[in-house]
Design a protein around this nucleic acid. Structure first.
Length: 606
RNA sequence: GCGCCCGUAGCUCAGUUGGAUAGAGCGUCGGCCUCCGGAGCCGAAGGCCACAGGUUCGAAUCCUGUCGGGCGCACCA
């Protein structure tokens, strides 16, 4: 159903060629403003004025004379320097009624890493934005024709996990099942930190924590981490997020990826082992050739005591992601709610074709910008400029809670589980009030509540800080997911009634009115918005488009002329009714697809 | 101090590879269920697009500077 703009661009380009324009500019085709004549127009004559040394209106007129009108265009007109095209309403509406299809697969693999939360406590609202963004962008890229692999990194050898596991042992706790496991462990973690606020206590406990860390690195406590991971996965699944593969940090080290990455880097002129000065005895990388403005461009990979920094492991991981290194082994981990298999790296697994992507998207908050730059620098140092170009950091700003930064230690935080529970509860209350007869009210409340939360996380640009406020994030009015879902349910309701009445007349597109044309034009923007979302790697473009689409549909639905409904569907004359049903069908299906790409469900009724 | 990001209506935000009169939601005020679902629709009020220069036929969008705000600059992760 694309193609209206594209065919105009092509026609204009050919006309310019006939006019003898040697270097045609980018041809911009846009919908004409509401009060202007025509359907689509181009300002290309303005851009050519200098090159051709002619007034824009003159060029516009010549262009209008030379252009061969593409299919569906009735006539062309000139307004000032703009060239405007008038479409046959029937053509636009028929085009808009065509079913959507995912773009054909092309290009290499793109690997999306998101979530990657420390396995040591429950997810909080900061993680929520990460999961919502990462899951949505993966779905969008897939629809836009990319081969996508979704990865979740398990930092099982981190300090935080060690502290959590130590806390359980230290306080002699046993899980009785009353609380969700990750919340329960999180409480022990917080308790430990309260105790360690005292410097003396901290020093006393340090050796025992280190011992746990070492056991983690040896892979001895994998089962403990898996228990935490299982509890966290429940939350992500509740959010509608699934993955292809988990990669464990300990596996990266055990399989020798870290050593090989360092060996590879040591052969380059950028990595050295200073024998004196600040970095004596350490292995460092000089990033000055790749990162500008650093006071101290040296980055430690191996500490002088021989241990690897987190960044070094991350570099090894990035090298694996992009196929510079291979060697991890995998096996099935669990089956996810949709039926999709989740794999995991594992010492006893077998080689499988994960990784080796030509492009990576790392979804991590903006505070990690420097380490992410380092990953690119390491790829550059390895001589792979092409891969460095393909490594994208999807940086999102932090989430505030009621205007203040999140803080686990001060208890200023809310878990994702809590947020979801409250959202679903509120959705259930609204249903009880507005639609008490609704059959599957509990399921719908889940879809609506979770949808509201996810949409709130993706509707704004990632690089803008957002403030999580209960009243806003859980709003069921205005620019929120329920608005989109309501538009969908309304369309579903009409189609249901049409089926009951046996209304299935052939559409007579020649009967299209300006009301249908207006809705059709918005429908026709769907693919462009998905493509743009994919290209800019941000779901908010699609989210904003869906709001436009729902608004156009609601306006169409409510249109009145002289106090009467202007656009009734079911009571319309034969042919016109068929046309309107075709548009409603397209609206419903596109809205459902758009919501799905954001990881949000579209109930038939709500 | 150096670097990156942000500043658009009372509030929260779209719009930025330069294009026609800067748009939504919330809030305020006023309307709309004899009509397919009022979680909706229509209308009003509300803008020196932070400020000052510059480039351009044309600037919220590009450049320079200034002022506000956020973040990053560890042999932490």
């Amino acid at each position: 159903m694309t193609g209206v703009k594209v065919s105009l661009q092509r026609a204009i380009a050919q006309a310019l060629e006939r006019l003898g324009v040697m270097e045609p500019p980018e041809i911009d085709v846009q919908e004409t403003p509401a009060e202007k004549a025509g359907d689509y127009g181009t300002p290309v004559a303005f851009q050519l004025a200098r090159q051709l040394r002619k007034a824009p209106p003159l060029i516009a007129r010549e262009l209008a004379e030379k252009v061969v009108l593409p299919e569906g265009v009735l006539r062309v007109d000139v307004a000032g320097g703009y060239v405007n095209f008038f479409y046959d309403p029937a053509f636009l509406v028929r085009a808009a009624a065509q079913p959507l299809e995912p773009a054909r697969k092309q290009g290499g693999k793109v690997l999306v890493e998101h979530t990657s939360v420390n396995p040591n406590k429950e997810l909080h609202v900061g993680h929520l934005r990460n999961v919502a963004l990462g899951d949505a962008i993966a779905r969008i890229l897939d629809f836009a024709g990319r081969r996508v692999e979704v990865l979740n990194y398990i930092d099982d050898t981190g300090r935080q996990s060690a502290e959590s596991l130590f806390a359980l042992e230290h306080y002699g706790l046993a899980h009785d099942g009353a609380k969700k496991y990750d919340h329960w462990v999180g409480e022990a973690y917080v308790r430990l930190h309260r105790e360690m606020a005292d410097a003396e206590a901290k020093a006393r406990l340090e050796p025992a924590i280190r011992a746990v860390l070492q056991r983690l690195e040896a892979g001895e406590l994998r089962g403990e981490i898996e228990k935490l991971l299982a509890a966290q996965l429940e939350t992500m699944w509740n959010l509608n997020a699934e993955y292809d593969v988990l990669v464990w940090e300990s596996d990266i080290v055990r399989e020798g990826l870290l050593q090989r990455a360092l060996a590879l880097l040591e052969q380059t002129p950028y990595v050295s082992r200073p024998s004196e000065g600040k970095y004596a005895g350490a292995l460092v990388m000089d990033t000055s050739a790749f990162i500008e403005g650093m006071e101290d461009p040296y980055l430690v990979l191996l500490r002088s005591d021989g241990t690897a920094t987190y960044t070094a492991k991350d570099i090894a991981f990035q090298f694996w992601k992009m196929g510079l290194l291979s060697g991890l082994r995998f096996r099935p981990f669990t089956r996810q709610p949709s039926g999709r298999e989740l794999y995991s790296s594992h010492p006893e697994g077998e080689p499988m074709p994960f990784g080796g992507a030509e492009e990576t998207i790392n979804v991590i908050d903006v505070r990690q910008s420097y380490p992410q730059q380092v990953l690119k620098a390491a790829l550059e140092a390895a001589g792979r400029h092409d891969l460095a170009e393909g490594a994208y950091h999807l940086a999102y700003e932090t989430v505030l809670l009621e205007g203040r930064p999140l803080s686990g230690r001060k208890g200023h935080t809310v878990s994702v589980d809590e947020v979801l529970e409250e959202a679903v509860r509120r959705a259930r209350a609204v249903i009880a009030e507005k639609n008490p007869q609704l059959a599957d009210a509990d399921d719908v409340a889940r879809t609506v509540g979770i949808g509201a939360v996810r949409f709130a996380m993706v509707k704004t640009e990632p690089k803008k800080q957002i403030d999580f406020r209960w009243e806003q994030a859980l709003s069921f009015e205005g620019d929120a997911a329920p608005y989109l879902q309501y538009a969908h349910a309304r369309a579903a309701s009409i189609l249901r009634k049409a089926a009951e009445q046996g209304a299935d007349d052939e559409p007579d597109f020649a009967r299209a009115t300006p009301y249908e044309v207006e809705l059709a034009k918005v429908l026709l923007r769907f693919e462009e918005s998905v493509q743009k979302s994919a290209e800019l790697k941000t779901p908010h473009v699609l989210a904003q488009y869906l709001l436009d689409l729902a608004a156009a549909w609601n306006a169409y639905y409510n249109a009145k002329q002289g106090g009467r409904a202007a656009t009734p569907v079911l009571s319309a004359a034969k042919g016109l009714r068929g046309l309107r049903l075709a548009l409603v069908r397209a609206l419903k299906s596109n809205m459902a697809t758009g919501l799905r790409l954001l990881g949000i469900g579209a109930p038939q009724a709500m």
